[in-house]
């Protein structure tokens, strides 16, 4: 199934690229780890250590600034994707037996109750906290003949540590922590310690504390030392 999934994922990305959607979206979640392979010179097999479900998430940083019209359900219809709605509020997903595609947007201010409309894409999106952290620092990787934007692995890993503490299901929290730890280890193997420290010290103190708690709870004091550089949580901007 995995080969089919990968092929399908690349086909989705290719269609997004051809329709001009690519500059507006960031591939996030566990599916972004697959494409970190090219970023890591050593320990590039990190993708094998991160568990993936069929959910593939695309983040749109500024949905209101998007000035293009792409009917995403129509664009992917012939691949076998069908529109489905989940929850009482009707969050839209595009469902295929190998992948489930969803759009996310950063939640701002007081937050929103229910899905955020994306009329230019014929979809709606889930608004979630902390997603700005992923858009702050991104990398671009070449996939076949186009470029995909991904969160920087340091941001990806630290974000996972933060959100793991907001999970209601313990096994999901554990999955997030495992993914974060695998990526942090790969970053350290690839001389990424300084980037990790820089990212860590830039985030608000509240978030720093969450990251520290996450690593302590995961029983990774050495990684904690690597990330904090022995310095206690402080200075970054206040949240």
């Amino acid at each position: 199934m995995e080969k089919n999934q990968y092929k399908l994922c690349v086909e989705i990305l290719r269609r997004f690229h051809q329709s001009g959607l690519m500059p507006h979206i960031i591939l996030i979640g566990s599916w972004s780890v697959i494409f970190y392979e090219g970023y890591f010179k050593k320990n590039s097999a990190v993708k094998n250590f991160v568990l993936r479900t069929r959910d593939i998430d695309f983040l749109i940083e500024n949905p209101k600034n998007m000035k293009l019209n792409v009917d995403v359900p129509e664009l992917l219809k012939d691949l076998g994707f069908i529109v489905s709605f989940t929850g009482a509020k009707g969050y839209m997903k595009l469902t295929h037996e190998d992948l489930i595609l969803e759009f996310l947007v950063p939640e701002k201010g007081r937050g929103v109750d229910g899905p955020v409309g994306l009329p230019s894409l014929g979809m709606n999106a889930v608004a979630l906290r902390f997603l700005n952290f992923l858009t702050d620092n991104t990398i671009q990787v070449k996939v076949e003949d186009f470029v995909v934007t991904l969160p920087h692995p340091a941001n990806f890993a630290l974000h996972k540590l933060i959100v793991s503490q907001r999970r209601t299901k313990e096994e999901k929290a554990a999955k997030d922590k495992d993914a974060a730890i695998s990526i942090i280890k790969a970053l350290i193997d690839n001389n990424g310690t300084q980037i990790l420290r820089d990212v860590f010290h830039k985030v608000p103190v509240k978030w720093q504390k969450k990251i520290i708690e996450g690593l302590k709870f995961a029983g990774e004091p050495e990684l904690l030392e690597f990330i904090t550089g022995g310095r206690p949580a402080k200075p970054g901007p206040q949240s």
Partner: peptide, 18 residues
């Protein structure tokens, strides 16, 4: 339950809704 069981349970839920 373990992480893998959690993932499998989530996938089962997904498959049933699919």
């Amino acid at each position: 339950r373990g992480v893998i069981k959690g993932v499998l349970a989530e996938e089962l839920e997904n498959s049933l809704s699919m």
